[in-house]
Every structure is written in structure tokens, then in C-alpha cells.
Design a protein around this nucleic acid. Structure first.
Lengths: 147, 147
DNA sequence: GTTGTTGCAAACAATTTGCATATTC
DNA sequence: GAATATGCAAATTGTTTGCAACAAC
């Protein structure tokens, strides 16, 4: 169904910015919206491809910028190399705990930290816009494997 | 003076790993150690160059890996693109508050957050090794400029 | 003298861009 | 029909790597 509310929002935003509501943009957004993983542009490229939807990598990169700008997705810079993107449409804010051995990502929410962050922003006179908070370590499974 | 204790440490570590104590490595480490900024490899390359010290960019990249591994520096992935490195030799741990307008970086320390992080690690059975915590926003000066 | 290191240039990987063609409004 | 998007291939950027010459041990 193309009547998901986020698609309506997207349409409205595009119109306001004089941008076009193209099938590629819609498919890319739907792909992200229906996933709760942390996707790279290539992941999206291949998922769409499998579904018979063609969108070039260039278009995906271009669209991701647009989606980040309008808060549909969040760009993550886990580890190095490629960027990852996560659905930000529904679902509450969270941060990430990353296993450096197996790459597994756990999402965590810690309201006390959020509050402290706000206080730090205030203390230094910053108007905060976003934050990156990633904890890196070795998960239980990987710790056991090393034995 | 080449008798700074960290240089002695460095020498010892290199020996233990069967690596050589070369002038390039020493100069690169000294350059970082004497700075309290967040340097890119290119910054180091040019600073050394100005001082008449020649070290290729490739060597700097290689040395940074070594220094990160042995905890002399911390690698930061602020914003995107190039990596930055900061002196970790003395000075206590801190995180960063970054102005997205002017690029200014403020270092902050918030022990309560550190404690909460540990608790999260424990909760999920992780042995934490490092973390990235960056707050992004607009600093006081830049907020005023927009008027 | 052996082994690890450097510098250079070429290789790489992720991302961006220019431009002709296609699509939306 | 005018204006924006797309796909492609080429360009760019940060970083890594192979290898011959060089330096540390």
C-alpha cells in the first residue's frame, strides 16, 4: 500500500521543495521503512534489485542524503568504511552497542544519558541537533569463543 | 628532549614487537604529543614538513595505526571524510561537542555518563573496549550570527 | 647482513559529479 | 514543454598497498 502516512509526508515535503515524487525515491524510502536493520547503500541497491526494482547506486546515495535531511533515516558511521542508515520513521530514539568481533549491533535506550546530554549542551550554550553514541566491545558470545 | 617518558614507553613497545624505533615514528609521535588539537594525517604531514622533517603521508597513516593500537592516540571519526587523531598520552578521557556551523570542538567530561555506559555494557554482557560519544549542535556564537 | 621501514606511485573503496536521456509536473 | 531526476561512466577523496631502495638492529 502506498498510502502509508510517511509516504504522504514524503510527497508533501518533496512538493514543498520543488522536488519530484519519483518511483525510485519511493521505492528506496519503502525499502528502508520496512527494515529495522542498519543498511548500507549497497544493501538497498541489491534488495531492490532482487525485487525487480531498478535504481542506480548513485540515485540511492542521492536519495539517502535527502532522507537524512528530512529525518526519515539516520546515518550511522559505525566502524569505518561505508555508512549505514536506519529507519527513523517510527520507533523511538536509541543508540548502539557494537561487537567488534562479530559486528552484531544492539540498540539501547538510556534516558538518563539523554538528559545528561541535554545538560551538557545547555552548559556550553549549544543548541543540540543530533548525537552519536556508540559503545564498542566484545559481546558475550565472542568472549566465550576466545576460550 | 627525547627523554620524555612516553618516548621511552614507545621505544620499549616497539622493541617488544620487533619493530624499529625510526626517526619518522618518533617525530610523528612527538608532533601529536605536543598538540592538544584533533589532527588529520595531512595536518601532521604539513606540520612536520614546515619543521623540515620529512615523512610521507603513507608513513603517517601507517604510524597512526600503530599509535592507536598502543593507546598513544585516539582516532576520532567526527563528521565524515577524514579521520582525526588526538593525543591520549596524558590528559584524562573526554568526549566531544561539535559545532556543525564553524567546526569548533569542545571537549567535555561527564562521569555520570561514563558510569551509565559501563552499566549498559554489563547489562548486555559486553566487555567494553571503547566508545564514541559526540554531541552535534550549533554553538552560541553561530546561533547569534544567524540573526 | 638480516629484517623491518620508508617513499613513491599505483591501487582501492566509498562516494560524488557531469552530462545526455528520461520522467514528472 | 519546462524543469528536475536518473543512469552511466568518469572523477574525486581518503586511505592502503606492492615494491625497490634504505635504515635499524
Amino acid at each position: 500500500m502506498n498510502t502509508e502516512p510517511y509516504l504522504e509526508d514524503f510527497k508533501r515535503i518533496l512538493k514543498k521543495e520543488n522536488l519530484r515524487y519519483t518511483s525510485q525515491r519511493v521505492e528506496i524510502l519503502k525499502e528502508i521503512a520496512s527494515s529495522n536493520h542498519h543498511l548500507e547503500c549497497e544493501d538497498i541497491y541489491f534488495s531492490l534489485r532482487e525485487k525487480g526494482v531498478d535504481a542506480s547506486l548513485a540515485t540511492i546515495y542521492r536519495t539517502m542524503d535527502l532522507l537524512v535531511k528530512h529525518q526519515f533515516v539516520r546515518k550511522l558511521n559505525i566502524g569505518e568504511g561505508r555508512a549505514r542508515y536506519e529507519n527513523k520513521i517510527d520507533g523511538e530514539h536509541h543508540d548502539h552497542l557494537i561487537c567488534t568481533e562479530c559486528g552484531n549491533i544492539i540498540e539501547f535506550v538510556e534516558n538518563d544519558i539523554e538528559v545528561l546530554q541535554e545538560e551538557i549542551g545547555k552548559k556550553y550554550g549549544f543548541k543540540l541537533t543530533k548525537h552519536i553514541h556508540q559503545l564498542y566491545g566484545i559481546c558475550e558470545d565472542c568472549q566465550n569463543e576466545t576460550d
